[in-house]
Nucleic acid binder design. Structure first.
Length: 496
RNA sequence: GACCCCAUCGUCUAGCCUGGUUAGGACAAGAGCUUUUCAAGCUCUCGACACGGGUUCAAAUCCCGUUGGGGUCGCCA
């Protein structure tokens, strides 16, 4: 059962689809769905100079990505004849005149102009504030206000939902509707979306293009949900909403009057909620291109089930798809990437012996799963009489290069026996090398202390006691963080 | 500057139309629980009716003013 309701979103391809535009499109789309009417997309490309194909493509892509499907599509650049025809009609009727440069201009008669806004009620303007309106410009292209009126009337638009910034265009348009004998549609002016500083949204106050949010790894459902909350409330203290239910409930008159500030924190939270409840199959499909781009998987050779397992590992703790990419690197890549800080942390304590035991225990496991891994791990910890954390944290670093991450045992299970063994072995190598470095250092030190002793007597040797201990620790495989730098400093200060 | 719009926690908002609420929820912040880290989750805390006048027994709610914020003043859209 279709109604005669027809709404439109009319972007101009002189820039990307931004947050404000997408929200306007959403409200139009929602109302069309609610009223079982039609949602029309009209490209306002009358400015041939500034309209660009790349912008048009981005707008269409972004709308499709947000799942705002349109029923009809029009381009104003293909309708210049129509505008001209109506302008000439006004000219013939004496309602418009020709300017010296050939432009056609509409004469605005003195009057009070009332517009009725569904959201704001009646607004009155004085025509004295409106100058005569250009209909067709010197270059023969129509002006925005004229093309807009002709199209909205001819296409049968019943409700015009657009940004607040168009309020002052509305009286200019209503006089044109009257002059052309067209029925005036209902108007609803949506509150603006502002940046963090309460001013206009700009690159400085946050990304504005929808395609940027897509790149950053937001889900279209989450973005739509967030836009909805900016200016409309579903009632019942709902935050995460079901779009089908919203379509049923949506009413224009319930749209807020107040401008809203775009809050990334809440968007992030909403996105994390959507990721948490998303089907991992869906997430895998969204992630595949990102993983290929990051070089984690090869285009022609990847396993969806493996990716799915990794997705489940991180699903509950990320807020964007890009978070997943940055957290999961160590699982997909052959080698672990260490930050210098993290490497130092691992070197703080030599657990070569413990890691050796762990490798042995893991080798015995035939079904390398979470439970079995945990059992062996805890078994070893008990046997050694140490705290779980003493082994968990170094192992996590060795395996992932990170000090934080998902539960260790499930991570190990996903990582697999082979990579786990390799990385634990690699950590042992690291300690061994550090130990050798320490040994070399000791040789140097002995030499230094001997020479120093020879020249300065025993007092200096005593003073060196502390530093010497650090070096000794180094050799024993427990290199003190500062041992090397101490030796270095001592050498500079005392050698000469 | 002129004209127009708007005004509830830091932010998004419910409540306003049809006056009587301990002014509710969410994000953020803080605390705790849980714990192998970080998150998540759960519990709690913090936190608002811009101001001034009316009207009324009673005002976040109705009216007026002030202040503050925003928008528009193109042969751009």
């Amino acid at each position: 059962m279709e109604s005669n309701v027809k709404v439109r979103f009319a972007p101009s391809p002189t820039g990307f689809l931004h947050i404000g535009g997408a929200r306007t499109a959403l409200f139009n789309w929602l109302y069309a769905k609610h009223a079982r009417g039609k949602f029309i997309l009209r490209i306002e490309d009358t400015d041939l100079e500034r309209s660009k194909k790349e912008y048009l493509d981005e707008i269409l892509d972004s709308l499709a990505w947000l799942k705002m499907n349109w029923d009809e599509l029009y381009y104003q650049s293909q309708r210049f004849d129509i505008y001209r025809q109506y302008a000439e009609k006004l000219l013939k009727e004496g309602k418009a005149y020709t300017a010296e440069n050939g432009a056609l201009i509409f004469k605005v008669e003195p009057q009070k102009i009332k517009i009725n806004d569904i959201i704001r009620g009646e607004i009155e303007f004085d025509s004295e504030l409106i100058k005569d309106q250009v209909l067709i410009k010197e270059d023969k292209s129509p002006t925005y206000n004229f093309a807009c009126v002709v199209d909205d009337a001819l296409l049968g638009i019943t409700h015009v939902l657009r940004g607040d910034d168009h309020i002052s265009n509305t009286p200019k348009q209503t006089v044109l509707y009257a002059a052309l004998g067209f029925k005036v549609p209902f108007f609803a002016h949506l509150p603006l979306i502002l940046g963090k500083d309460g001013g206009r949204l700009s690159k400085r106050t946050g990304a504005t293009a929808i395609s940027d949010y897509r790149k950053m790894g937001y889900l279209p459902e989450a973005l739509t949900n967030y836009f909805l909350l900016l200016g409309w409330s579903p009632g019942g203290n709902q935050e995460v909403v079901n779009i089908e239910e919203i379509i049923k409930k949506f009413e224009i008159k319930n749209i807020n009057k107040t401008a809203a500030i775009f809050d990334m924190d809440k968007l992030n939270w909403l996105n994390s909620q959507y990721i948490k409840k998303a089907d991992s199959v869906y997430l895998v499909e969204l992630l595949i291109p990102r993983l290929i781009e990051a070089g984690y998987i090869k285009k022609e050779n990847f396993n969806r089930e493996e990716i799915s397992a990794v997705v489940k590992l991180f699903q509950g703790r990320i807020s964007t798809l890009e978070d997943f990419v940055s957290w999961s690197d160590f699982i997909f890549l052959g080698e672990v990437k260490f930050e210098e800080e993290t490497r130092k942390k691992l070197l703080e304590r030599n657990l070569s012996k413990e890691f050796g035991f762990l490798i042995e225990r893991f080798e015995k496991i035939t079904d390398f799963n979470h439970a079995a891994i945990e059992e062996e791990f805890r078994g070893l910890v008990n046997e050694l009489g140490i705290k779980v954390g003493e082994l968990v944290h170094p192992v996590r670093i060795a395996l992932s290069g990170k000090t934080i991450g998902p539960g260790l045992f499930e991570t190990i299970a996903i990582l697999g026996k082979e990579k786990t063994r390799e990385r634990l072995t690699m950590a042992k190598e690291l300690w061994k090398n550090a130990g050798q470095a320490g040994f070399k250092c000791l040789l140097w030190l002995s030499l230094l202390i001997c020479s120093a002793g020879f020249f300065s007597g025993c007092a200096t040797i005593k003073g060196m006691g502390e530093d010497a201990m650090a070096i000794v620790n180094c050799v024993r495989g427990q290199p003190d963080d500062s041992a090397l730098s101490r030796a270095d400093r001592w050498m500079r200060e005392n050698w000469w």
